[in-house]
């Protein structure tokens, strides 16, 4: 409520004038979003219920409104669906566990190095995301130095590998989406008045209780934003699975990709895309409702 009120008054203080201007400002961008986001999604819904043209070439489909496409697609890609959500969930959890102390340290313990550290969080972004993923593959691969070392120390068996595994896919995703988690967390932690933490200490809460009762609740907007920004791209990702995984770690993105390009099965790919989007939107809506941070949107 307070948030809404302040938003209204803020907008109203200066240019409260109504008229065509805001719509003129919106028009070009909104038109673009409509053409290249909404229309494709609608078209995708259409494609998802098509069936192959009898006797036609590969890639020729006709609209028959076959909703059973969805059931077929889901059944065909059930393990990949499950994997996508489990991997994304694990990667989000890991990213949160790694990012929270990092963001906390930058927000409260970095002193005059704060800006430099913030730049450092984003800096890995500036080398290509694919280059970094390939770098991990090579560091942790057969030719890298990590695996021989671990084998020599008998930490892992002589045949064991670190890449081409579910673990590698999850940690790869964790790594790639880490800044998406760290930055919103930092932003919400930074906004906390350190005196509220002192007040909590003063009111008989020790460090852990203060974190549980004050710091963490106050950082909730950052937690919600960070987990969403990590979970959504992770669930749809297939690059990590392709580079760091094996045939048993494929995710829904890999299936959509191969249905499109290798099998040229547009309806199944469309149905899968649609289900993925719907599933994520439903999860996100429930999550935002439950965490009570509607103002994010």
């Amino acid at each position: 409520m307070a948030f809404l009120q302040s938003a209204v008054t803020r907008a109203g203080t200066f240019t409260g004038r109504k008229g065509r201007l805001p719509y003129l400002l919106l028009l070009p961008g909104m038109l673009w979003l409509f053409t290249f986001f909404i229309l494709p999604i609608i078209n995708l819904a259409g494609t998802s219920t098509q069936t192959p043209v009898l006797g036609g070439d590969t890639g020729q489909y006709v609209q028959t409104f076959r909703l059973a496409n969805y059931i077929d697609a889901f059944n065909a890609a059930r393990p990949q669906f499950a994997r996508s959500f489990i991997y994304a969930f694990l990667a989000t959890l890991l990213a949160l566990a790694i990012s929270y102390p990092l963001a906390y340290a930058i927000a409260f313990r970095s002193g005059r190095f704060k800006n430099i550290l913030l730049v450092l969080v984003v800096a890995p972004f500036f080398t290509s995301f694919l280059l970094r993923t390939v770098a991990w593959k090579q560091i942790l691969g057969e030719e890298g130095f990590v695996v021989p070392t671990l084998r020599a120390l008998h930490i892992i068996g002589p045949q064991a590998t670190l890449t081409a595994s579910a673990l590698a896919v999850v940690t790869g995703m964790t790594y790639n989406f880490l800044p998406f988690m760290t930055l919103p967390l930092y932003a919400s932690l930074e906004r906390i008045d350190p005196r509220t933490l002192e007040a909590s200490n003063d009111l008989y809460a020790n460090g852990i209780t203060t974190f549980r009762k004050v710091t963490f609740p106050l950082s909730m907007p950052g937690v919600v934003a960070g987990t969403l920004l990590t979970f959504i791209p992770a669930a749809g990702d297939y690059v990590n699975a392709a580079i760091l995984g094996n045939p048993n770690t494929t995710m829904i993105g890999n299936v959509i990709d191969s249905r499109f390009f290798r099998i040229v099965d547009y309806p199944t790919a469309a149905a899968l895309s649609f289900m993925l989007m719907a599933a994520i939107l439903i999860l996100v809506t429930i999550y935002i409702r439950r965490s009570g941070t509607d103002e994010l949107v």
Binding site: D193, T196, E198, A199, L203
Partner: peptide, 15 residues
């Protein structure tokens, strides 16, 4: 949190 002392903070620091 171990002291029988409480503070009214400058700018209050309400949660």
């Amino acid at each position: 949190y171990q002291r029988p002392v409480n503070t009214v903070f400058q700018n209050y620091a309400l949660f």
